[in-house]
Design a protein around this nucleic acid. Sequence first.
DNA 1: CTTGTACTAGAGTGATCGCTCTAGCAAAGG
DNA 2: CCTTTGCTAGAGCGATCACTCTAGTACAAG
Lengths: 192, 192
Amino acid sequence: MAKPTTRDRLVGATAELFRVSGYHATSVKAIVERAEAPFGSMYHHFPGGKEELGAAAITTSGLAYGDLIDLFFGDDVTDLVEATNAFFAGAAWTLTESDYADACPIATVALEVASTNEDLRRATSTVFDDWITRASARFVQHGIAPDQAPRLARGLIMLLEGAFLLCRAGRTTEPMADAQAVAVAEVSRLLA
Amino acid sequence: MAKPTTRDRLVGATAELFRVSGYHATSVKAIVERAEAPFGSMYHHFPGGKEELGAAAITTSGLAYGDLIDLFFGDDVTDLVEATNAFFAGAAWTLTESDYADACPIATVALEVASTNEDLRRATSTVFDDWITRASARFVQHGIAPDQAPRLARGLIMLLEGAFLLCRAGRTTEPMADAQAVAVAEVSRLLA
DNA sequence: CTTGTACTAGAGTGATCGCTCTAGCAAAGG
DNA sequence: CCTTTGCTAGAGCGATCACTCTAGTACAAG
């Protein structure tokens, strides 16, 4: 497989560092080192500096993460409850496999910039909206009433994000299991 | 009312800045300026520097925030569903009143330090555990089965934290209303 | 070939970071 | 009175921050 372009490596390295440490704890120097890119190249590809690169990383990694929604709730799903169980179980598995480092790619940054950087805040908001739109469509496809689907989508995402927070803070997957139980109950209720 | 001690003002100022900007975007200089404290006093009261002051701010503001649980789910509550509605409605009101700045006092910091600073991670974990313990006791008091209370407590906290994230990112309280609906459904289910 | 464009490469910039250090002040104990 | 203790006060430290600047390289167009 060919080596990705310098620009792609920069975006990828930024996304990885954002996920673990957030925006302000990630230095430009650390990004270019991880990306094995020269310092000057970063400001060539992203004249807007760290902020522009950060926005690209949020959007790219956020939308890529959204692909998991189509993966877990795709066309071949026959039982929405079962898919929901698999979705949360997968999140728990990823957490333990990565020693609680690999959770939501944008949540940390989203909270950091929500009140302090309007451009980055909008980038995170766009990603969340994308997830909700995609999940809603999938839920309708699998039997949820159209007027209830966005509520369910937001509910599951909020449970997942809250579970990521508690799991990472406590270094345990117990909250994820509880989130899964609440999510399944809600899905079942709206299917009935 | 008497002016709080320098130490208390430092902790309070740190907590306020953490809530809006998180750990790494909050500088020691900004803290002492907001606290109207001399620079040297900070290192007298907190020889461990920013990290020790940060841990104190997390613990103090976290436990104070937990008092809201006893406020909303206290002895005088007769209808747990109604109390749950009031709890989430109060969170939504606080968000709009503060222009989406005043949400969870420790969530941003918790995600920032979860994988990078073990002492601070433990401080955030202790706060979350305190909330869950207190909420569980209140839920049992109001009719939830003891073996289900911790799950419900975690569920509501995760919904609240997830809602804070989506509300702040999107500058809307719509997710909080959806979280409220899911929470009420879950409370009702476990009361039946 | 020459020229132009896209990109690589890293030394060097001022600003700000967390923190250390010394000096001085206020009140209590003898 | 004098000394001690707890705290105030801020100048100054090295390190690191995001970023700028100049120079060099690779390659396509003409």
